[in-house]
Design a protein around this nucleic acid. Structure first.
Lengths: 348, 348
DNA sequence: TTTTAACACGAAAACGTTTTCGTGATTTTC
DNA sequence: GAAAATCACGAAAACGTTTTCGTGTTAAAA
């Protein structure tokens, strides 16, 4: 169990100074060819690699970016990570992850841990609890220490930083318009409580689509789910709520749901009530995840291009990290990723 | 944009030495109460936190563990990461991820990058390509440098290290026995080519179950899929193969598939051929992912307890990292995680 | 009053790099 | 043959910590 070899050891072994070894390995013209060859051969033999930590300390740059997300067992977030990872690795960066588990305090603690030198910048999506509490001091503190932040998907207007967001409003609007064009006249919306920014925007898209087609939104067609519950383990509660929606509104012929799970549950409930999809009810969801694709019937859904979001976020962050100090005035941009409607069998 | 404050700056500001500041903050008895209070108050005011990189360099310990997995957009691996993350954070470690994308060279490069000081040890699952190539030198090299490795799920017997594996054989066996008990007499197997270690073991479990019940395995009932294709984007090819299996074996009344996707595809094809699930054909899959739960009918499946695997792996690694040097002789253990059969509507 | 002990603090090394600057030896130039 | 230039290398600082070992000052013991 030999330790990794260091410059010092090579220097000692070859009876030269540490500086000489370092320079020889970096092919400095200061060093004679003789010495270079000797050193390089030795280094290769012992498989020398510079110690990253020492480099980070010296350069005050870790070449690592930190991702903070609310949850990793989630198709959307995994895809974003993958996008970040691709770009980061191509540009010579590592990725370190922290999970907030939708908790404010875990988000804060995780950020504090990573901010103490471990990383050069953050890519993050805000936890639900943070969105509720509206406490954003940790973001401001991090940024005031010169550590850039890029937010994605769940962003917050109070913080001035680079952002990558989905065009939730238009994504939802297009989906609902599709239902209208397909002949739906009584379109239900299954969404979340308003503090979830994306839920709010998608709700707004639903309303705008109706208005533009002179349709009057009815309150009893809008179901706002309290998603602080973990519905993965309480599916029945979710389904009960949806069943109530259907039974008290027999005329529903279209459903727009703000995520996959709600959409799938709606399909399940509809089938249970003897309704055929898509002939009696057409359904569109949000997020083109694995559930939509493999559902039966396949779920028509709004694709967010999660991987692309990760890529853009990573590029944004690394650009900022590597930008020279020439322009001192900070400028932040918000990238809006357009959505696509992926049509499957749950619509006509 | 002020930089993070350092000991040196505090020392200068308070006109004491760096050593004094350091000791004061760690409550050393060497320092007078007066000075301690002064220093601690100042540090708190400026929100001082020790620089992790400097600590890592000094202690030759990063308190970070590296995970290398083939793919992150995958329910099983995400769950493992979550398990690792939970334990790691509780025990004061960070988690850094690398994706091999099922590629040998990316696995090697990723490991080399992280091994140069960034992390204290690895938790990994081997890429398919590595399994095919049977080239494991990078694992040996890493370990010979004193960096411990814990492998999970896709392990390899040639390497001596801690391992956490699923009891694939018995998981599969139990599943097939369930089908037999439920009255199935012609049970098909949908599996992968043999170089995927877990596929091989699950196939073996299938065979053993049949043998123990005096049933003769028939070659034409076993479908070995070449999973170097990305079936997420070529679902139709997969479904064609399965359809052939059904049409040339009209008597199939049970299907055991070694993953969720194969199982779902089998259900889809069966339904298309007019077969009722579970009355005409019963289906069991492997991996209790999101697909099984939300499929219609719900898929009976073998649960691997991915999160628990991650937790055990993390504990194993950190135990090794923190073990005193007392017992010099290395000892490695293999933890076998038992599976559960989660019964849903795809079986009687 | 002298010796010893306790106290409170600082200097310096170490972790592994890179880089600036200096310097002795050789070579070139006039 | 003296001055200048080139060459090849080493010493040391710096990044931010922690920790060991001194050391000067004061208080207690003789």
């Amino acid at each position: 169990m030999k330790r990794k070899i260091t410059l010092k050891q090579i220097a000692k072994e070859l009876d030269v100074s540490i500086s000489t070894v370092s320079k020889a390995l970096r092919n400095s013209p200061e060093i004679s060819d003789d010495t270079k060859q000797k050193v390089q051969a030795f280094a290769k033999l012992y498989n020398y690699r510079p110690n990253n930590i020492a480099l980070s300390l010296k350069n005050r740059k870790t070449n690592t970016i930190g991702i903070i997300i609310p949850e990793i067992v989630h198709h959307f977030f995994s895809k974003v990570i993958r996008g970040v990872e691709t770009v980061a690795n191509n540009r010579g960066y590592n990725v370190i992850i922290g999970l907030s588990n939708e908790s404010f305090s875990k988000e804060v603690i995780n950020m504090e841990m990573l901010a103490n030198g471990s990383i050069d910048g953050f890519i993050l999506s805000i936890s639900k609890e943070t969105q509720q509490l509206q406490d954003f001091h940790h973001f401001n503190e991090t940024m005031s220490q010169g550590m850039p932040i890029v937010m994605f998907d769940r962003v917050v207007s109070e913080i001035n930083c680079d952002k990558v967001i989905v065009d939730d409003l238009n994504g939802a609007k297009n989906a609902v318009e599709k239902l209208i064009q397909n002949g739906c006249e009584s379109i239900a919306l299954i969404t979340t409580k308003d503090y979830v920014s994306v839920g709010k925007l998608r709700t707004q898209g639903y309303l705008e689509a109706l208005q533009e087609h002179k349709m009057v939104p009815k309150a009893q067609l809008i179901l706002k789910i309290d998603d602080t519950f973990d519905f993965e383990s309480h599916l029945d509660m979710l389904e009960n709520e949806i069943e109530q929606l259907f039974t008290s509104n027999k005329d529903i012929d279209g459903v727009f749901a703000v995520n996959e799970l709600y959409a799938l549950s709606a399909m399940k409930v509809a089938r249970k009530l003897g309704l055929d999809i898509p002939n009696d009810v057409q359904v569109i969801g949000f997020t083109d995840g694995v559930l939509s694709k493999h559902a039966t019937p396949g779920l028509t859904t709004v694709s967010q291009h999660a991987e692309q979001m990760g890529e853009r976020a990573a590029d944004l962050l690394i650009d900022k990290l590597e930008k020279e100090y020439d322009t001192e005035e900070e400028s932040f941009q918000t990238i809006v990723i357009a959505t696509d409607l992926v049509e499957r069998e749950s619509t006509k």
